[in-house]
Amino acid sequence: MKWLLLLVSVAAAEPRSGALDMSRELQAMQADDSANPGMLWVQEGEALFHRAEGRAQKACADCHAGLAGVATRYPAWDEATAAPIDLAGRIQQCRAERQQAAPLARESEPLLALAAFVTRQSRGLPLAPPEDPRLAPALARGEALFRQRRGQLNLSCAQCHEERAGLRLGSALIPEGQANGYPQYRLEWQALGSLQRRLRNCMVGVRATAPAFGAAEYTEIELFLARRGAGLAVEAPAVRP
């Protein structure tokens, strides 16, 4: 009987967006496009999306009509590099190869803006990570990274986000660490930032080394976050304290 109850409770455990634990004010700010500061980046991204760039003098819009739902399926398998790629990585790739334009650096304003514009088109749609067996090894590495203790404080992501979500670390309510709101406007940053920036914050918080932006480890962790958050509605650009 006990195992049955256990099964039921595991099945009932649905992923929980960090937005649900914010103040009403921040929830309202996130939900209202005219108050959500992240929408400035979305607008900038829309303009960039339609601008012809590079030696090819092509705009993103010349190849893509709309990109609704696309962000729900990232990270995805990239045939060209035979490796997983995140959405920002795909945008960088299109820019370099199809537009033949100067590369956009990770965490640069134009790349954040384009990623925000593309991800915004999936708002409200459930995260649907691809069931691609070629992603399995990277997904497994991502889960291992999530469970690995690290840094001078010797804590793993799982010890906070799986075992202690909902409790308080000092003033901060520990969220489940879901990735459905990125890129995201964080009041602390006074800017839009990527999931990788958030992951670096957590790594620096436990006094660990953080891999450079764009490192494969982040995509591996993101693959695992997408898997455990499957079904959550995309909220980007989310707002966080």
Partner: peptide, 8 residues
Amino acid sequence: LRDVAPAF
């Protein structure tokens, strides 16, 4: 400990 930031 693993992956400790250089400063620490």
